[in-house]
Design a protein around this nucleic acid. Structure first.
Lengths: 131, 131
DNA sequence: GTACAGTGTTTCATCGCTGCAACACATTTT
DNA sequence: AAAATGTGTTGCAGCGATGAAACACTGTAC
């Protein structure tokens, strides 16, 4: 059995995934904090691999990342073979699109909202089951 | 996203699974403690649903149970009701959107017009008659 | 220039999970 | 009978994760 002293939390994986996703979306730590409910200070520590996040925060972040939890909570001290796996959420949800738009410094908030709304309307139509 | 205050850890599920498995095998808390590396006192508290286990212990126990972690760390935060991301003070009529776009100094007039047009088309296509 | 708003980082006090050890109770052993 | 062993539970100090607020820094506005 794996050593009982060693942690089963893959902090590195989570931290890198968080930083990558956040920068992909052009969001600040406080933006992510608002969305996920995890404070910016904790997010900073996670991205830098300091300490071990508690279960609730791991759940919140993997949830936001749309990432399997078992990639962070190592089952059976598993193999650390898989490095940079880019999972992209199923499809661009209105939330993701809105984040991108809001992060675009070249757009006014109003424009960002307009485009978000536009996408949301289209999305709600396109994603409906075909009649 | 679900309320940020409520925990995403399914303590009940974990506790019951632990107790059931342990009794199935006829083991004492200290037996399980020896195998899993989680102290008997903590195991007792988990089986009784007191408090929230930390990430490491959840990993150890789901690992021992051969149980998917996401059974304990709720993905999708319980209720999957989509909460609104874009808030408009008023209904986003094409007129309002166009005004916003035209006021955006970062957009060329042509772009603003194109986006207005696009939104107007989408709006007439998708928006339902007022109830 | 001087403010100002935004960024990530980092004190710092609070909070609660953890494990040891003691506990109360039951069962077995002598 | 008492003593010993085993059970789950719990008091308690230590430790570490957390988030608000202050920090240092940058870029922007005025």
């Amino acid at each position: 059995m794996a050593f009982k002293n060693e942690s089963l939390i893959n902090t590195g994986e989570l931290g890198r995934a968080m930083k990558r996703r956040r920068e992909e979306l052009g969001l600040s730590l406080r933006d992510v904090a608002d969305v996920t409910g995890v404070s910016a200070s904790t997010l900073s520590r996670i991205e830098n691999g300091t300490g071990k996040p508690d279960a609730d925060n791991i759940a919140r972040l993997t949830n936001w990342l749309d990432m399997p939890v078992d990639r962070v909570l190592n089952k059976q001290g598993g193999s650390d073979e898989v490095e940079a796996v880019v999972y992209y959420p199923h499809e661009p949800t209105p939330e993701i699109v809105e984040a991108h738009l809001r992060a675009d410094k070249n757009l006014t908030p109003e424009t960002a909202k307009a485009l978000s709304e536009l996408f949301r309307v289209a999305y709600s139509q396109f994603s409906k089951p075909r009649d």
